[in-house]
Amino acid sequence: MAKKHFLYIVLIINFLSCRENDNTVENILIKGSDTEVNVALALAEHYMEKEPLVSIAVTGGGSGTGIAALLSGKTNIANASRPMNAEEYHLATSRSIHPKPIIFGLDALAIVTHASNPLDSLSLADLGRIFRGEITTWAELGGPEKPVSLYGRQSNSGTFLYFRDRVLAADYAASLKQMNGTAQIVEAIATDPAGIGYVGIGYLSEQERKLTTSIKVLKISSLSNSRAFSPLIYTNISSGKYPIIRPLYQYINGQPHGRLLDFLLFTIGEEGQGIVRKSGYYPISESQYAENLKLLDSEMAIK
């Protein structure tokens, strides 16, 4: 709950003193994903330190809220931890708004079990079967004769929805224990020899060393007969070999100019990506960077 309050903290800084210079302050509004609100705040703070004539306001509220604000022209940037859906694109067209997705970070979900679990890897399909409740004992996967004990987030979490749509494509098993936060999932699995759950990679990389004594991060393969990859190795994420990755988007309307463009370039640039990494997410790949430039830089490319 505390996190929730935090999300509504609005960061507005007015540089009234700058009026003397006859320069006007440019405002940038960012709204959307709760997952991204911390990293967006960090990016905004760093950018404002460099550019005192820019004032950036960051608010949360969820990906859907941010996209809705973009579609009604109430924000410059909509943060979203999921791509816009067909309905939203349809609405955008009818309002002659042209959303462009700028990917500025990657979030991977790690699958964790108790350290005593003999399993080291799972296929995406088996993972889906486990969380849909179709596999109910570890013995079915060659493990010990124990019932699978499922842990996940609560339904108000974007991660809950992302994992459901990406991995399950159906409802979670009713026996899923819905925990109040990532830390509680880890806490519970550390004491549950039959437990399995998903957590954001940002959380794990921070505490990796401490955790590996009680929990284990599984390698995941895209197909049941293909190689499995660990999410703890960065190249597996950047190359897309680890299958449960979601891009973090910044949606903008049409061609950005001036400070807005400068800020977006900052977020995907070296300094911005360093902040993304510090916030617990993975930096974007080179091809994603090039893709972003193509979307952003049509003007600059012409120059």
Binding site: Y172, L176, Q178
Partner: peptide, 11 residues
């Protein structure tokens, strides 16, 4: 209870 009882949907 929200923190400590699992919150599963199963009856």
């Amino acid at each position: 209870v929200l923190m400590a009882t699992g919150n599963a949907l199963a009856f």
